[in-house]
Amino acid sequence: MTFSTPAVSGTALALVLSMAPCSPLRAEAVTAPAIALSCAGCHGPQGAGEGSVPRIAGYDRQAFVQTWSAFRANERPATIMNRIARGFTDAEVAQMADYFASVR
């Protein structure tokens, strides 16, 4: 698994082109935001999914936020995601939703 999937590379290129004059290093910011990095421990690198743990890469942004809210409210069957969901703020969930929606 790498970060060179077409969608992400496209974003990378766009960032390089738009920001290169002052800060070419920003091209590297296409890697996951810090808040999304810990998901990899169960969902796999970049949320690719692993065994019984579902893929979250490419998850629809709005569905991600709604599913998260349902876990948080115990309105969706869960083993551990309900316990996890309660520990993150709406802003953090939004960041994760943005990121995983961008991964193909």
């Binding site: 990899a40 421990g41 169960c42 690198p45 692993e50 065994g51 743990v53 083993t79």
Partner: peptide
């Protein structure tokens, strides 16, 4: 399910 998720965790985190 948690036993299955444990196995998935092992696979995922060793990949990461």
């Amino acid at each position: 399910l948690e036993a299955l998720h444990a196995d998935a965790w092992y696979g995922a985190i060793t990949k990461d």
